[in-house]
């Protein structure tokens, strides 16, 4: 069910370089990084708590949980929604940790040129031979939403990576 409607807003006319028809109230995405710490609760029981990684110490070998929260406030449904997140420098993607409800998750081992589902990504070795990419080879992750976003929709996608 895809209706094609041409909407030309004044704002778009002011930016002729942008050929898109940008509507007001689009997708907003917010990235959060957290680490898990073990703490003792009031009853003296050990529990795992997530804390803001930007406000604590992160050491080599430790795992960071990245979560991208999105909201949509446009009037008309947003289609072809693709969230991209390069694996940050100095980090290694941890296999099987990318998640996102209602999304198709793909990976790239060539900085986003080509994508494939987990285990089907190839990478070229130094000797020019193609081989199957390991999770540690992944450079980019993308989540393709399977359904359009309606006004007020919100959700999140996540992955974990380890500091080298």
């Amino acid at each position: 069910m895809r209706k094609i409607v041409q909407i030309v807003l004044a704002a778009a006319l002011l930016v002729p370089a942008a050929a898109w028809a940008q509507q007001k109230g689009g997708v907003v995405i917010r990235s959060v990084s957290e680490v898990e710490v073990k703490q003792k609760n009031a009853e003296g029981k050990e529990e795992v708590k997530r804390v803001d990684a930007t406000k604590t110490k992160v050491l080599p070998g430790e795992t960071v949980i990245f979560t991208n929260y999105y909201t949509y406030s446009g009037d008309k449904p947003a289609t072809n929604v693709v969230i991209k997140n390069p694996v940050p420098d100095h980090m290694i993607y941890l296999d099987g940790t990318a998640a996102g409800a209602g999304t198709r998750i793909e990976f790239s081992a060539d900085k986003g040129k080509t994508f494939g589902t987990a285990g089907k990504v190839t990478v070229r070795s130094a000797d020019g031979k193609e081989r199957r990419a390991a999770a540690a080879d992944y450079t980019n992750i993308r989540w393709t939403l399977e359904k359009p976003l309606n006004k007020g929709a919100k959700g999140s996608v996540t992955f974990r990576a380890k500091v080298k």
Partner: peptide, 27 residues
């Protein structure tokens, strides 16, 4: 270590300008 996500989408068949998230930086 900074992390930035981006999102691309279309509205009514028209591709919208991709939106970037904040960059959160871990030390």
């Amino acid at each position: 270590i900074g992390n930035t996500a981006s999102v691309a989408y279309s509205v009514a068949g028209a591709a919208q300008t991709p939106v970037s998230s904040n960059t959160n930086t871990i030390t």
